[in-house]
Simulated assay, not measured.
Amino acid sequence: MSNTVFAPWDDPSERPLIKFQNVTKRFGTFTAIDDLTVEIFEREFFALLGPSGCGKTTLMRMLAGFETPTEGAIDLAGQNIAMVPPNLRSVNMMFQSYALFPHLSIWDNIAFGLRRERMPKDQINERVSEMLRLTHLEKFARRKPHQISGGQRQRVALARSLAKAPKLLLLDEPLGALDKKLRQETQFELMDIQEKTGTTFVIVTHDQEEAMTVASRVAVMDHGKIIQIATPDKIYEEPNSVYVADFIGDVNIIPGTATPSGDDTFAIQWSEETAPLTAKSAIPFALDETCHLAIRPEKVAITADKPDDATNAVQGKILDIAYLGNSSTYHVELTNGAVIKAQTANTRRISRRAFTWEDTVWLSWTATAGVLLAS
């Protein structure tokens, strides 16, 4: 999905499909969702991302109608649905377990909800055929769930969820039961199906890679609050806090104090033994304000000699090497005891590494490589 074409959240004239307005959900004394406001737009693939217990599933269960808010309102297509029962919402939910009927064929599993709604037989046949085509399951229509693979069962559950043409489809950790390779393949299938149907998808996941792959926007959650909502590239490149930077991907977090040193430029005092680091930031920092510099390992260059023109250069010794096939991550211990990770792409097939354990190396990066964060 191209964010340059599809960005209703940037258009003030667009009305959201879903609106959470100051929603709080308490279970006894425990606050699962804390005064949360969020808008989700039609045709979005929206990801709720966060660790276990952050409130993302509670948020989804309130959308589905299995939980009601303690305070606040939830609007779907302009209607407050807080008190509308699940079966009367144009919302469908796909569970991690898939919950297929083992005694029914794939065809009958997909048709189940349509039959319950007393849809005419010819319309059911047409709709089920359409769903089988969409999910590439035509040749499995007469099989039972135990006769097909996990990935295919996942697609049956998806076809059944979409058969009733809901305005909104909720996916709760839908790919959790699949192995990594199949999960990656299925992520692209999900995106393709979502785009073809135009249904709004909201996915709950703790897998950051999954959220970054499928979503038009990602909401990073912690303790019942949304910390940041943005497109995947912004979440990665422009995190708004140490929590988001740390949660998404691999990152070096260097604590220090900032001193303005020119146009949007700051000197970061971070260690008595080493020279200040230089970083650019559009966010202003006061003199000696506590800050954290977040730098992705792939933005840190590793060399044997000190680079002549580097804005930031520090020396250290290689402590650990993680070989990941397409890249290698070097953990380098600096003279002040800090450990910084640098990542290099393995573009050529070579029999030996350029650097090995205990080697003394230089790490360097530009003034714009990192993001300066207040908290």
Rank of each mutant, 00 (worst) to 15 (best):
A82M: 07
I321F: 08
F6A: 05
A258Q: 10
D207W: 09
L104A: 05
T197N: 05
T213P: 07
H146M: 09
E333Y: 01
A7N: 15
L17C: 08
E130G: 04
P232H: 12
G78F: 11
T329P: 00
T68E: 15
L158P: 07
Y236F: 13
A77T: 08
V5W: 00
S105P: 09
K164R: 14
P239L: 10
E126K: 14
S271H: 04
T199P: 02
A342D: 02
D288H: 15
T135L: 10
T58A: 01
T29M: 03
A338P: 00
K19Q: 14
G249V: 01
F66N: 07
W9G: 06
H331R: 13
K164W: 00
L59A: 12
A99M: 03
L59F: 15
E71Y: 13
P260G: 09
D179F: 07
N3L: 15
S241N: 05
P232V: 11
R127D: 00
G28Y: 06
F30R: 06
V244Q: 05
G113H: 11
S97K: 07
Q315C: 13
E117N: 13
Q147V: 00
P232F: 12
A159L: 04
K299E: 09
A163N: 08
K181N: 13
D11W: 03
L63Q: 06
S13E: 14
D222N: 15
N312S: 01
T303H: 01
G151E: 06
Y236N: 01
D359K: 05
H103A: 07
T259F: 14
P86S: 08
E358N: 15
S261G: 02
V128C: 10
A73E: 13
I248L: 09
D172K: 02
R160V: 09
E209D: 14
A313P: 03
D122T: 06
L293Y: 03
M62E: 07
G150F: 04
T335M: 06
N3H: 14
L88Y: 10
L277W: 05
G28E: 10
A82S: 15
P174K: 02
S97E: 11
R133I: 01
K341S: 12
T205R: 08
L158H: 08
G176C: 02
L319F: 07
L324F: 05
P69I: 07
A338Y: 12
A313H: 08
H103P: 04
L88M: 13
H103F: 07
T205N: 09
D172F: 03
T58C: 01
M119Q: 12
E126G: 00
S97Y: 04
